[in-house]
Design a protein around this nucleic acid. Structure first.
Lengths: 244, 244
DNA sequence: GTCTATAAGATGATAGAC
DNA sequence: GTCTATCATCTTATAGAC
């Protein structure tokens, strides 16, 4: 789980030297794009290797199985993503030795690295996030792949939000994160639905407009849940296993 | 598009009489369940007719094609859903001849019929909403199927929200709806991710807890977008084609 | 690492008997 | 409306030559 290799069987390594874009990467690029467009089952290994212009057998050689290929695609860009997210969070926490970071700053650190890459990172990143959107909403893959790939970092962010909203109940905190996750990933899918619904006023691929609004929308939502009226106030709820 | 039949070719009709659960419905039930579990491409017609315990050829006979079957599954429960949503909205608008409905009441009328059926409507409804979650986040089907099935009703709700938030800009209104849609449909997927993330504090299938929180979360989000500071106030922005 | 060849079976759809 | 039989193609995966 460190460098993103190793999937079930021996990994051939990047011994090929000079080329920074060898067969392995070509297959990952094609798989990323096609999985994003039509989903895991909607694409065959032949579609992928054909698009990558490599031999059919090489996908199985490099990734063991079709599912191994999906997991490799999913893991490839995760490290960079998680790294920048944590760096931003750490910067916020370090800067705010005395003045704690605002909820808006924390949510921004969580969403900006993603929306920025989907908007300006090139077609590979765009496909990657569309795939994340599908996986997040898939009963088949969502529970395992999202958890394995992102939730260690998510825990760090929830911990920061917990401190920004003292007295907030654990359940409210996690459900609010759930809503944020749904709003964020639907954005990545870029289905074009909002374009038609809004009569052209909004465009699915205008991610800067989304980001400008997602942060205040969710920050207000978090606050609304954590200060709801008619609440029996409890002691700070020392999270038991929630923060392992 | 009235009674939910008619998909591309002649429809054999429910002439079989007595039985209220004929072959057609058995196929729809099985397809609904399997499409929800593994997605459109993850299931074969043989899987579906096998689960329905009917002959393989009957799926194509009744629905023309695999895609026709998907569209029939998607349309089957939509009418009841849209009907109750509109009835609730109309009740709100009628009751509030003088006192306009609150944002919370409008959002509740939009989400409650869905969350209530997913929680207590039986396994068919549960599968249906899981399928909606996947379709909403699918670049392949989301833009067409969601628009065709739900967006006429969605427009009515957005119109009501527009009146509850006078002066709100169109773009903010539609993006806020987009966030609501993402939060709502991720809930339907019930992937189990939130269970693990929260260490058991939240459960994916506890939809009553979700509903209790989704309404205030989104209401606060809508308000936050529509009264953002540093905004150049515009005239009520008479929506041109957005409300056809 | 790459390729050919092929195993072994599944796929969506249909024609035509009943 | 239902079923059998079948078409023509595609499916994942692997063995073995180079």
């Amino acid at each position: 789980m460190t460098t993103g290799g190793k999937r079930g069987r021996r990994t051939p390594a990047r011994r090929s030297g000079a080329r920074s874009h060898p067969t392995r990467e070509r297959i990952l690029d094609a798989a990323e794009r096609l999985f994003a467009q039509r989903g895991f089952h909607g694409v065959s290994i032949r579609d992928i290797t054909g698009a990558a212009d490599v031999d059919v057998a090489l996908a199985n050689y490099h990734f063991g199985s079709k599912q191994g290929l999906l997991e490799a695609v999913f893991a490839r860009r995760a490290e960079e993503l998680n790294g920048e997210r944590l760096a931003r969070l750490d910067a916020l926490l370090a800067a705010g030795r005395r003045k704690a970071p605002t909820l808006e700053e924390i949510i921004d650190a969580f969403t900006h690295p993603l929306l920025d890459r989907s908007a300006r990172g090139g077609p590979g990143w765009k496909s990657y996030f569309a795939l994340v959107a599908e996986v997040n909403n898939s009963p088949e893959f969502g529970g395992v792949l999202m958890t394995r790939t992102f939730d260690q970092v998510v825990q760090r962010f929830i911990e920061a939000i917990r401190r920004a909203l003292p007295g907030c109940e654990e359940r409210d905190l996690y459900w609010a994160y759930h809503f944020l996750s749904g709003a964020l990933t639907l954005t990545f899918a870029e289905t074009g639905r909002i374009d038609k619904l809004s009569g052209g006023v909004c465009r699915s691929n205008d991610l800067d407009s989304v980001h400008e609004r997602l942060v205040p929308f969710c920050a207000a939502g978090f606050r609304a849940l954590c200060v709801r009226k008619g609440r029996t106030r409890k002691p700070p709820a020392r999270r038991s296993k929630a923060a392992r």
